[in-house]
Design a protein around this nucleic acid. Sequence first.
DNA 1: AATATATTAGAAATCGATTGCATATTTGTA
DNA 2: TACAAATATGCAATCGATTTCTAATATATT
Lengths: 355, 355
Amino acid sequence: MHICTNEIIISLMKKGSENTMKDIALELGLSSSTVSRALQDHPHISQETKIKVNEAANRLGYSYNAVAASLRNSKSNTIGLIIPRISKYYQSTVITAIQNKLHEHKYNLMICQSNESPELEKELVNALYASRVEGLIVSSTLNTTDFTHFDVFSRSNRPLVFFDRVPKNYPAHRIQGDDYHGANMATDHLLAQGCRKIAFIGGPLFCNLYRERYEGYTDALKARNLVPDASMAFFHDLTKENALLSCEKLFSGKKDSWPDAVFCCNDTAALAVTSYAKKRKMDIPGQLKVTGYSNDPLTEIITPTITSVEQYPSEVGAQAAGMIMNLIQQKLKPGKNFISVTIAVDLVKRDSTDK
Amino acid sequence: MHICTNEIIISLMKKGSENTMKDIALELGLSSSTVSRALQDHPHISQETKIKVNEAANRLGYSYNAVAASLRNSKSNTIGLIIPRISKYYQSTVITAIQNKLHEHKYNLMICQSNESPELEKELVNALYASRVEGLIVSSTLNTTDFTHFDVFSRSNRPLVFFDRVPKNYPAHRIQGDDYHGANMATDHLLAQGCRKIAFIGGPLFCNLYRERYEGYTDALKARNLVPDASMAFFHDLTKENALLSCEKLFSGKKDSWPDAVFCCNDTAALAVTSYAKKRKMDIPGQLKVTGYSNDPLTEIITPTITSVEQYPSEVGAQAAGMIMNLIQQKLKPGKNFISVTIAVDLVKRDSTDK
DNA sequence: AATATATTAGAAATCGATTGCATATTTGTA
DNA sequence: TACAAATATGCAATCGATTTCTAATATATT
């Protein structure tokens, strides 16, 4: 057993750079081929040599250079991820699931935030491509309508998987929550609770999420022979501020024109509606019922707790990572067939809809 | 202006691999040196050649190989980040700030989660080192007491910066919030509001954060000639569940032994205390005052809103990234001098302490 | 004894971009 | 005219790990 202090290790290192396999080889009078194979536990190398090599590697403070291996093998063991923001509950949960799954396969994840900017998104795609990530997982910007900047990946057969915010007419694999069903369930629940004037607060309809949720919402109304009221549907960035503005419009006229429920496409908006209603002394759920989307822990903290749609983000992340790994390992043959996985959602009923 | 369809581009590409500078050189009857220099806009290359090279690069669908450049230049343009979890407000805000700052310098960020496991942390350090990240930013695991696995970085003079959870006796640069002062202010505020039996809920004292907050808390008490009551101080992982258990203990005996305030070292715990109190029909802030730490947006959502300590995570992230960049660019000379930056904090008074 | 088969190790090319040095051509100056 | 300087380009080595092919032993088989 050798005991090395830092000083000894430093003195054994060449000035200004790392020791390489070559240095180990030199030290032992071997070739670097042998060292490489020994470190990989290759069967053609004797036990004796392997032990000597590993010992020398420790002694010299050798560290494997993944960059060199990456170049030689055309294999970076890295996956790229582009996402608008990492700070939301849903997003960060998906990321964590992806990372854990990839780690099982000894893959790294390079996470980039597009900050909702299509230009930055494009730049990041190219940067990740240049870094030779082996696959790319994306939730696109709200404003990405042109997806051609992802062509580099599809063109070179490098796996490309979209989740959550997926393109409409772009050939790629995708993992989505069942947005139609989620919205449909939530709306139907409100109807079952007796609501008849249900407002809708969502994002722009060119984004798949809101398009499908809006459909789920309108279909639920139609199923009960109700006509969706366009003056009660709002489409904008789902920030607190925007949601409050929509509230102003919803609750401006005479009291009997007010909605008796609001279906919100995220929890931020649902929260804003709830606090608006509280401020105006409206009773929730008595006078107004509210539902959110994503089942952010926030929904259990506010009074009243808010009914929301659970999207199982961990499952989404695990599926996305799993799909990328399968594509890389060619368990799924690349080609013109694209897989679309839909993750089931559940309605979590809480106080804001009287359960 | 050339118009290329995907088919044309694909047909121009070698089977199964990318076009390289060599291919561009071949196409134009130049050497790859010239191509390299042309693409870098090197002054020794004529305008004419540069235009031809760029045009051919587009035509061939050339994509820069950052891995090859990385090897040749010993420069990966990548920084590593190891963090226990990305899902909390504070953490994700710091990350975003780091990423934005690094992006200005054309650096990428490789984010890894240690999931609070020291073993995984160690593994990640080595993986990032092998990937030749040029610097490492770390917030360590709650249970990391031995920091020698970071030696690889210090030993090879690769910048290492700790933030938030920083080591006690390990030589490295660090960015910290002013934990002592934050806790001191919060406690003093509670005292000023008339509280005299202030409980403390924090993490284990071997972690700098909680050690310093505890000191700030006790010093505030002592400054008013109060003796900290050990039976009212709890040290554990700051989860909701643990915090509720501590509440059980705090409010188990006779009513006059109950605390009149609880200082919590994070907002999760403060939230738990608040909901516990609400469930037991205690009046906040009348009967019990509560403060949290980190100023998570949650604190403004719950009723009552919770007084908390703002840590300016964006500033922390920007400083950490800025310091790494300075160290890389040798604006700070590496050596035995370690910089410790303290970021000021502020107390945000809300309803839970009667303001 | 002679050939076959493991076993172990090395030489050299490769991945793709970069760059110091050498070279060739053109322009400028004494 | 001759020589200096500026301009434009190529050659070849380099970064570090991997792998194919080759070669040298040693052991086994007939």
